[in-house]
């Protein structure tokens, strides 16, 4: 799925896959931090967004 999204021109860093146990609070925090930093660097997504105007 990630490969297809990348192929169609959606930045790879917008999609993350992770396996986190309910006991791994620190890993959850780390992953979410990493994701939000990467997505913030990319800026708002304008692709595949439906424009209702």
């Amino acid at each position: 799925m990630g490969n297809l999204l990348e192929h169609m021109g959606i930045e790879r860093d917008r999609l993350h896959f992770s396996w986190i146990s309910s006991a791994e609070a620190t890993k959850f925090v780390d992953v979410v931090k990493e994701i939000s930093e990467k997505v913030r660097a990319l800026g708002p997504n304008k692709k595949l967004v439906k424009d209702y105007n």
Partner: peptide
């Protein structure tokens, strides 16, 4: 050929 394009060019292609 498509993979060699950059992200925005890929998007434009499709």
């Amino acid at each position: 050929r498509i993979e060699a394009l950059d992200t925005d060019a890929k998007w434009q292609h499709f």
